[in-house]
Design a binder for these strands. Structure first.
Length: 686
DNA sequence: ATTAGGG
DNA sequence: CCCTAAT
């Protein structure tokens, strides 16, 4: 193709729905920041699972792309009808596509306004499992006053990266993020954010519904809830060693990433990269200001270990929001002119005061977006709830939303909407992927000393919480200069000062395109092993079916930027078109156990049945996967233990593998013989 | 859609 | 895990 005209879109910021996260008592230093950060990560991850995926995959391989695309989609909405849509008028929103996955770490689920009721169950379920309280709109931070500001960051970061965080975050996802695009030219229009239902907390007050909805259990502790594994009784017959009463563990994660159902809304195809993609270039800029402030509201959740009691009502709020349609708000657009400039990353100005609390639920926030008016404000707010007095003296903060830093993308006019979506997604993912960290602003000042406690900084003072704001800022630490990305994609130049981050993003890009949500999953997997099992099968089942919409993503481990950086430019082009390779998800011992059981009973060659019997709930395990796994198990069983890699499989299981394999191979042979014999007989006869 | 195998 | 051929 020849030159294509390119359209540049400047996004002032994406608003990310706040993700409520339950925080455990963190005693460490800096827990506050971290918590916030962690939460965000979760949200981001949703949006951009990609980043995480990238990280994980980058080692592995070149191909990628689809999955991520599937999971998260970006929808382009044109509000105004002008035929020539002006760029300015378009709005994009990020929405999750897949089902919910719950895994350890961070889970984000979307609450769709779309309203499939079925989702509710799922979400609730997920929440219960995760102990997350989530409101679509807000992020809640509960910290010990004694904690130091810095610790939070560390915690969050570490956790997310490692993927093991116990706490989980959920956020609304579907519509969660919406931003409107600003104009490209120097000025950038700000975008309103809205979150689907989330935002409008205003509505929150309705109690009745909410209360019903939420399960009490959720409320309780932060700690994770264990879900009973599902077991099926199998009747065995064939394989000698098999007992009928044997139970198989049923699977695990259904939600996972891989098999995603596509979002109802947008067809996958749309998201797929059109051929031209390569051409498009994206420039992302990070504006200094990141997040917008939003009024907070929500109740907080607390989950402190100690007290569970009061929480309930708050929760209800969350639920309500999900879909309550009441709010028309969902999509309003706001326009703001904000210029983004760069502040350096964080601008304090943005802080808005929140309506502080008030009574719990009622709140406010009608337009979360609202604040934005100011422009690129960095953060938003925190509301708080009473805090100090409680025994623990915890400060509860509800962060309504963060605004994503401005970014620019450039894409050919000939590009498809789907590619635009993907491009934006990638850009978002890139930003998110980079190591953002949370900056804390209080009373107009940026608090840089992470060692101070909230008490020392005054953050525990309820009356002044309004002055508390958080901002996402590029991590100074990582800023790889590389721009591995394909040339086409990034064009760094544009970026204003804020670039600091930029570097990272590029790194992401490569991966990003393909990268997708999966990564997170993977992470989990490791830890998850048990997780699989734990996944509530029964519940799941119902849930899954019912709620296609919601999906959760697991937090992605932070990626090492380095790694990203490493990723080469070259692949990108192809990958964008290629389908992303599924994330690698090693079989857990539990899964192996289930597989062995099923094969003992059903034999080899009936993978479909094996799948149904033992992995019906594990959507990411296809019969082909099971067949392949069996193949590898047989191989593993035959090699010396020293040569085995990965999570060790109990010898006992391997022995069973060999036994079953031998048995069924024999059976198969017999069958063949029999058939041949019969055939011959027939021939002879005739 | 499944199965079987090679890569 | 992916890809394919053959069912």
């Amino acid at each position: 193709m020849v030159l294509q005209k390119r359209l540049d879109y400047g996004f002032n910021g994406y608003q990310v729905p706040a993700m409520p996260r339950a925080c455990r008592s963190a005693r460490g230093r800096g827990s506050l920041k971290r918590k916030v950060e962690e939460t965000q990560m979760g949200a981001f991850e949703l949006l951009a699972t990609v980043a995480g995926k990238l990280l994980q995959e980058r080692e592995t391989s070149p191909a990628l792309s689809n999955e991520s695309a599937r999971r998260t989609q970006i929808t382009v909405v044109e509000d105004n009808v002008k035929q020539e849509q002006r760029d300015e008028e378009k709005s994009l929103k990020v929405e999750p596509c897949d089902q919910v996955s719950s895994h350890e770490s961070v889970v984000v689920s979307e609450f769709g306004l779309q309203g499939h009721d079925q989702n509710n169950n799922l979400q609730e379920f997920a929440r219960a499992q995760n102990n997350v309280v989530s409101g679509p709109a807000s992020l809640i931070v509960n910290c010990d006053l004694s904690e130091k500001v810095g610790s939070a960051e560390e915690t969050a970061t570490g956790k997310s990266r490692s993927g093991n965080t116990s706490s989980k975050v959920k956020g609304g996802s579907t519509d969660n993020v919406e931003y409107y695009k600003g104009k490209v030219e120097g000025g950038i229009e700000k975008v309103g954010n809205l979150i689907n239902g989330t935002v409008p907390d205003t509505c929150s007050s309705d109690d009745p519904l909410e209360s019903d909805t939420k399960p009490p259990a959720l409320v309780s502790s932060d700690s994770s809830i264990e879900v009973p594994l599902l077991r099926e009784h199998l009747t065995c017959g064939s394989f000698p060693g098999c007992r009928d009463d044997v139970k198989l563990v049923s699977r695990d994660d259904e939600e996972n990433s891989s098999g995603c159902t596509q979002p109802s809304t947008t067809p996958l195809k749309a998201s797929r990269p059109p051929p031209h993609i390569e051409d498009r270039k994206i420039r992302k800029l990070l504006a200094s200001k990141y997040w917008e402030v939003a009024p907070k509201l929500e109740g907080e959740l607390s989950n402190t270990d100690g007290d569970m009691k009061p929480v309930f009502r708050n929760r209800k709020i969350f639920y309500t929001r999900q879909r309550s349609l009441r709010n028309p708000c969902k999509r309003r657009k706001l326009e703001k002119s904000s210029v983004s400039t760069s502040d350096g990353g964080v601008s304090s100005e943005g802080i808005s005061s929140t309506p502080k609390k008030g009574t719990n639920g009622s709140t406010i926030g009608s337009g979360s977006t609202i604040h934005g008016g100011s422009g690129a404000s960095s953060s938003s707010v925190a509301g708080q709830e009473s805090s100090s007095q409680s025994k623990d003296s915890h400060v509860k903060l509800s962060i309504k939303s963060f605004r994503v830093p401005e970014l620019f993308i450039e894409i050919p006019e000939t590009a498809t909407v789907g590619s635009l979506k993907r491009t934006v997604m990638e850009a978002v993912a890139a930003i998110l992927g980079e190591g953002l960290h949370v900056g804390v602003l209080y009373q107009g000042k940026k608090i840089r000393d992470d060692s101070k406690t909230l008490l020392q900084t005054g953050i525990c003072d309820e009356d002044k919480l309004d002055g508390l704001g958080f901002a996402l800022e590029p991590s100074p630490t990582n800023a790889p200069s590389l721009c591995p990305k394909d040339p086409p994609f990034l064009v760094p130049c544009d970026t204003p000062q804020p670039l600091a981050r930029y570097p990272t993003s590029p790194a992401l890009d490569p991966g990003i395109s393909d990268a997708s949500p999966d990564p997170p999953m993977i992470n989990m997997a490791n830890s998850v092993e048990s997780d699989h099992d734990s996944v509530p099968s029964p519940t799941d089942m119902s849930i899954d079916k019912n709620t296609p919409d919601s999906r959760a993503l697991v937090a992605v481990p932070a990626m090492s930027v380095e790694a990203l950086a490493v990723v080469p430019l070259h692949r990108k082009s192809r990958r964008s078109e290629l389908v992303q390779r599924r994330i690698r998800r090693p079989f857990s011992v539990t899964e192996v156990e289930a597989l062995v059981q099923a094969v003992e009973k059903l034999g080899t060659g009936r993978w479909r049945d094996v799948k149904l019997r033992a992995f019906d709930n594990a959507k990411h395990r296809t019969y082909v996967d099971l067949k392949d796994k069996w193949k590898t198990l047989v191989h593993t069983a035959r090699i010396s233990p020293q040569q085995r890699r990965g999570e060790p499989v109990p010898q006992e299981l391997l022995d069973r593998v060999l036994a079953a394999h031998a048995y069924w191979s024999q059976q198969q042979a017999k069958q063949q013989v029999k058939q041949l014999t019969e055939t011959c007989l027939l021939l002879n006869t005739s």
